[in-house]
Each structure stands twice: as C-alpha cells, then as structure tokens.
C-alpha cells in the first residue's frame, strides 16, 4: 500500500507512467522496444508517430499488456500492472482499446457487441447497458444500426462502433492503434471526427496514427518513435515546424508531401 502511495506522489498528475519499457524477441536479437519512458497525464492526447517497424504499435499494445514487456514497469492509476500478481483484467476495464481492424465480435449484433462487457463484467442490468449503448450509438450517428451485424457495416461505421464499444466500459484512457489505417479514404474523416470530439471532452488518449493532420490539430503532445525508442517529443508545433532529430526530419519529409 505504502509503495503505491509513494508512486502516486512522485507521479503528480500522471495517469500512466512507463519506465524503461523493453520488448525483445528471439532472445534479444529483435528489439521492438528498447527502453521507453513516458508519462501520460490525465486529459492528455498523446499522438505517437514513426515509420513502420518503429515499435509504436508494440508500445501501445504494451500499455494494456496485449504485449507482455520483457522489461520495464507500467504504472496505471498508481498500480504496477506489470507486476505478475496484479490482476490485469481489472485494469483493462479502465483502458479502452480501438484496433486497426475494428475487431467487432462477428457473432453478435452491434448492441450485443456493446453491452456484453458491461453486463458480464460490470454486472450492469440489460436495460442500463442498452440505454447507455444506444445513447453512445446516437452520438456517433448509428442509432439505427443497433440490431445490424458487423458484416453489414462499412469500415467507418465499424470503427465508430468499436470506439463506442470501448466507451461503454467508461474507461479512464483510450488507446488507438492505427484506427484509420484500414479504412477507405472517404471514411477516415468520420472516425477522426469521433476521436476529436472525445478529445475535446477531456478523454485521455494515446493514439498511434499516420494521420499527421489529426496529430497537428488534436494532439497535446506528439511523440516520434524509431528503432524502439522515443527520439523526440513535444507540442505539435515543435515537432512539425521545428523538428530537431535528423530521423524525424527525414520521416516528416516523406509523410508531409
């Protein structure tokens, strides 16, 4: 108990605090993450950019332990979730995640997709869970698709459902793993709009994306990763207008055409 308190004190307002995170494969020959430290404060929108293979997705997936780090600590809400004795399932309830390929449950309709976790895990009544789900669907303009199955939705619709499915658990932080990379270009906007409105409400977000426009507009902090390390971070303005690291300059020259 005392440990947790000290940790909380040191952190200040940090919701997630990452220390020396490493992820090695093949006995250390492949270093997907090679010592990453980061603090994510409440209400921050951290956008992580970098070339493919830079470790940014691995980093994001480590935050809720979908990837188990080889080394390092992740303190979430004052608790060390990398401690094998901690119950990761309880922490994950408070960390919503949105995937590149949506990952809606194929065998359930949209409403069931959104209510199954609150009902089974938070023991909410069906009425309560459905009411919340319908309100969220309405917010993203999909209230008429509640009884549809994922296969009947477009990519953009699926991703909007995936976002509100995560919100149904009332998470403290939302993790986005390239949420628009699998979308047709005309559907990217509708998903980004939902994310923007979430950010404007003060949701803490960590976003891995190639959408530089989103990063410039919405991020409170942009983090550039390459080779499993954070090479530079700062406000969108600092990163995009005045990059220092040569690799970042090179990266930006390729993506900002």
């Amino acid at each position: 108990m005392k440990d947790n308190e000290t940790v909380k004190g040191i952190q200040g307002g940090s919701l997630i605090s990452i220390k020396g995170l490493k992820k090695h494969y093949n006995g250390g020959r492949v270093k997907a993450l090679d010592g990453v430290d980061m603090e994510i404060k409440k209400g921050e929108v951290v956008v992580i950019i970098g070339p493919s293979g830079s470790g940014k997705s691995t980093f994001l997936r480590s935050l809720n332990l979908l990837e188990i780090p080889t080394e390092g600590k992740i303190i979430f809400d004052g608790a060390d979730i990398t401690d094998p004795k901690s119950n990761i399932n309880l922490h994950r309830r408070k960390m919503g995640m949105v995937f590149q390929h949506f990952n809606l449950f194929n065998n359930m309709n949209i409403l069931k997709n959104m209510t199954i976790a609150p009902m089974k895990l938070l023991k909410k009544s069906r009425e309560e869970a459905e009411q919340k789900a319908k309100a969220l669907l309405k917010r993203v303009g999909l209230e008429d698709r509640a009884s549809a199955f994922p296969s009947q939705l477009s990519g953009g619709q699926k991703q909007r459902v995936a976002i509100v499915r995560a919100l149904c658990m009332e998470p403290e932080v939302m993790l986005f793993d390239e949420p628009t990379s699998a979308l047709d270009p005309e559907m990217v906007g509708e998903v980004l709009d939902v994310m923007k409105s979430l950010a404007s409400e003060g949701m803490t977000m960590a976003v891995v994306t190639h959408e530089m426009g989103f990063a410039k507009e919405v991020a409170t902090r942009v983090v550039f990763m390459d080779g499993g390390k954070i090479l530079e971070q700062g406000t969108p303005d600092e990163i995009f207008s005045n990059p220092q690291n040569p690799r970042l300059k090179d990266f930006l020259s390729k993506v900002l055409v």
């Binding site: 979908l66 399932n89 960390m95 089974k120 995936a162």
Partner: peptide, 21 residues
C-alpha cells in the same frame, strides 16, 4: 482471427470468459 480474442481481452474479459463468450 486473433483480433476477436484481443478485443475480448482488451475489454477486461479473462482468458476463459473470452473463450466462452
């Protein structure tokens, strides 16, 4: 698809619950 499994786990279901539901 492993994404189905990961989506279940990311919501907080444990291994057995994810399998069953």
């Amino acid at each position: 698809d492993n994404g189905q499994f990961e989506a279940g786990r990311s919501l907080g279901f444990n291994y057995v619950q994810t399998m069953i539901h």
